[in-house]
Design a protein around this nucleic acid. Sequence first.
DNA 1: AATGAATGAGAGTTCATTCAT
DNA 2: TATGAATGAACTCTCATTCAT
Lengths: 207, 207, 207, 207
Amino acid sequence: MSPVAYLCIGKREKTKVANRQAILDAAREVFGDLGYETATVRDIIRRTGLAAGTFYNYYRSKEEVFAALSDDGARRFAPILKKVRAESDGFEAFVRGAIKAYFHFLAEEHRSWVAQRPAGEPHPYFPGETPEMTAVFAEVRDAIQQVLAGRSGPTADPDYIAAACIAIAREIGDKMLQRRPVDTKAACDFAVNMVLNGLRGAPREAT
Amino acid sequence: MSPVAYLCIGKREKTKVANRQAILDAAREVFGDLGYETATVRDIIRRTGLAAGTFYNYYRSKEEVFAALSDDGARRFAPILKKVRAESDGFEAFVRGAIKAYFHFLAEEHRSWVAQRPAGEPHPYFPGETPEMTAVFAEVRDAIQQVLAGRSGPTADPDYIAAACIAIAREIGDKMLQRRPVDTKAACDFAVNMVLNGLRGAPREAT
Amino acid sequence: MSPVAYLCIGKREKTKVANRQAILDAAREVFGDLGYETATVRDIIRRTGLAAGTFYNYYRSKEEVFAALSDDGARRFAPILKKVRAESDGFEAFVRGAIKAYFHFLAEEHRSWVAQRPAGEPHPYFPGETPEMTAVFAEVRDAIQQVLAGRSGPTADPDYIAAACIAIAREIGDKMLQRRPVDTKAACDFAVNMVLNGLRGAPREAT
Amino acid sequence: MSPVAYLCIGKREKTKVANRQAILDAAREVFGDLGYETATVRDIIRRTGLAAGTFYNYYRSKEEVFAALSDDGARRFAPILKKVRAESDGFEAFVRGAIKAYFHFLAEEHRSWVAQRPAGEPHPYFPGETPEMTAVFAEVRDAIQQVLAGRSGPTADPDYIAAACIAIAREIGDKMLQRRPVDTKAACDFAVNMVLNGLRGAPREAT
DNA sequence: AATGAATGAGAGTTCATTCAT
DNA sequence: TATGAATGAACTCTCATTCAT
């Protein structure tokens, strides 16, 4: 409408992108604070300062913004993980690199989504179940299984192995974030040790 | 009330007990299917065929039936765990016994509560987060920490150790239940191996 | 069934009367404490120690027990009022006698039904609206109107007069019960004065 | 929000105000018909034709709409009463003015809230207990007591006096509204007479 | 595109009443 | 007749979503 509309990136355009991001950020915080079920769309848009209806211009539902959050997390962690794989020489190096990367990613993320586990609530929402992390774990699982598949000799139960590794990383990562100060080095050492020593027995059986 | 109440149980008492159990069972299923938050009291009573109000003759709220479920699970697992501790000679024996007991408990339980993870749902409720298991894990954590505390020499990070052990047991137990046939022996071997080997490194650091 | 059933007044018979009275008494208390609307049938039967269903053997509904309470109150006050009328010589004597009788009746009644006016509640239930008193006022209204009708010369607005007298008696009676000590004499004097002097003007107009 | 909000009112704002008023009016009617306790939020919104949830966009609870109604009534009557006090020379003039003002206020109000006393109902809600009137009476009580306090010589029981005056005004006002045609003049004369003559005796005692 | 009031299905819960025992 | 568990309609209130502005 305005004659210069095609010259500058319209304020509207910028707002559109900014709003999408604002909603995403707010959703991350709110899901972190309240959990997926407890969180309401109102909680999310209230935190953005936008109007209720505006939410639906960007996401069709609470579920969709959750999915978007997963994508977002995965999209940021995926390249990190890929780099680790490329640079790792052997399974041990990969495990060490991946856990380290994950713990740093965890620590550096907005702490906003760290679950505030409300005491009385029976069903807390914990970091590893964050939309972002759910997607991350899927990536990790694939990576582990591909690495294992590439190893010489048949490997015992790659599905169990991936599950156990992720369980350890998730649980220790969670505990790590609850401590002050957050000590990624110590957590990393513990988790890597646990995984590598733990697996030392298992694959051997298969040899 | 009647002095012979414990000898002859009237039909009323029988249905009362049966209803209480029916609600508990329905709640287990519904929580398993939908998760604590999504599940509604109506979902629970609908599954029993009872009337809406009847739920409140037995439990005062959704939260209370959840707690009852936790108690129920814990009450049944606690003595098993205690027996394992009493009969175990050393940490390894305890771990082996506890994991075995847990996996058998898991397998023998009503399969009713096995989460049906509906594909599209963003926030599944998985077995290890079952009310029953939540309580069980608390018991296990205590047991591990007591056993660790009793060992000679300072041990590295009992909190991390307990967390990792439980994470493995939970995750592998979950995976185990998803396979057909359910092979407790294999799952048990894997988990025990993982835990014992995994920990072999960690405590050593502390010596 | 028992062979002597027709000889003695069965325990059942006695219980039946006693239960009816117990429910009535409980209802009086509960209506007094909570108000008609807030009070529940459960509240009433709980106070009697009887079972929920038993209530319905005696009264068909909450409304019916309320009506019974009204009758009860009226039945006890009616003869008192009748006696006052019979013994009163002239309007003044009647008013004096009736107010005195009412205030004593009020003071001597079980204090149970004195409204506990819960502070925050917007709509308290006050003594004059007690089922018993509602019926009493109807009687008084009739008495006043009959007395006025019997007087020589047409009287101004007997309906207004009755309303005003009752309003004063009710309101002052209420206030009286709230004071410690309860001083029926002072309240009585005030109310009688108010009514008699107040009316002195009104009927005169009609002469 | 818009800087000219007070100049041009958008259609939205208009309906918003209209809805708020519609709910208030409906509440007045419903409270009048059913009484505070019996009335439900559903009853209120049903009468407006709005959706159930809409009620909560305006009032947080039944209690809040009741309070709003009280405020509304008091806000409109308070200035009238204040004017009467300012213009009245002496107690008699004040009483006469206040009662007249009250009766006119009563008559001119939306008749909507005139209680429809359904015959069978055991616990009618009568005008004087209307949320609006409850607030009004509090004001009147204060006014009477202040006027009495300002009089020369100690006065007998100002609390009883206020109670009696209000009782008369309330009751006669109520009766007045039930008659056709509504004759404020007659009711006013009767009530004023009653109050002034009635009090003529009482204060004298104290002299 | 942004707004925010309106919507109405559905949540948890209560309670007068019924009915098998 | 007494019991008290079962019933289910109705309540207050929430919230994802729609839609007129």
